[in-house]
């Protein structure tokens, strides 16, 4: 009844799709990081900029990524902006994760005791030094588990980019079922590949956490 041999004979194609999925998600997570910090800073700054940041974050967290991707793909040409599928997909995932990362960083900074900054300031450190030497390392360490989860979510959510003509892992799976008529076997293979990718991210996150802990122990 099961015919995994058929599905496995397409493993090259599936692997190519997996590479697209992984690269795209990784790029979005990495670029989304400074954007998230910028959004968090903007939201703290007060005034018009803060209102913009708050609305931005609310919009990107309150609407489905699918809809965000569709808007980014179809609307720019109406404004005379040529945006390719891959660019629209990258933009969509990046703008989306930036909103989520901004909230993660906010939570991270809020969890630091106020006294630390005050103490550092009393020791004569400049604002930038306080941030770089005292706060940032702690925030990165505190937010690491949340960031790992966010990376996993982005990788999973990237399965939606096929609707805007990016041939990612899911789309390859669909293309293969169109030829083999074997949805069950092919989708099990696709699910397994997603699971491998998300597990890799989870492992990387845990590895980074343990490195942080070792640094702490050495101090």
């Amino acid at each position: 009844m099961f015919d995994f041999v058929t599905a496995l004979s397409y493993v090259d194609q599936l692997a190519t799709g997996a590479v697209t999925t992984f690269t795209l998600s990784l790029a979005a997570i990495v670029v989304g990081c400074p954007l998230g910090f910028a959004l968090y800073s903007a939201k703290r700054s007060g005034g018009l900029l803060a209102r913009f940041a708050a609305t931005y974050i609310s919009f990107f967290r309150g609407t489905p990524l699918l809809v965000q991707l569709l808007i980014l793909f179809y609307v720019p040409p109406a404004l005379g902006l040529p945006v390719s599928s891959l660019v629209a997909a990258f933009l969509g995932l990046t703008l989306n994760t930036a909103a989520f990362q901004a909230e993660i960083y906010r939570a991270g900074y809020q969890s630091l005791p106020k006294g630390q900054a005050e103490a550092a300031s009393a020791l004569g450190l400049s604002r930038w030094q306080i941030h770089r030497l005292v706060l940032l390392p702690q925030v990165l360490r505190l937010t690491l588990p949340a960031l790992t989860n966010e990376a996993v979510d982005i990788l999973k959510n990237s399965a939606l980019v096929s609707v805007i003509a990016v041939t990612d892992l899911l789309r390859v799976g669909q293309q293969v079922t169109a030829v083999t008529y074997r949805p069950l076997e092919v989708y099990i293979a696709v699910a397994a590949l997603y699971l491998i990718l998300t597990s890799l991210i989870g492992l990387a996150g845990r590895f980074a956490e343990s490195r942080f802990k070792m640094q702490d122990a050495h101090r």
Partner: peptide, 22 residues
Amino acid sequence: VAIFRGTPLLIQLFLLYYGGPS
């Protein structure tokens, strides 16, 4: 938990809907 959180919902639905009957 690892499986359901580690794979896209879309794939889970595909498997349940199109794979379930077999």
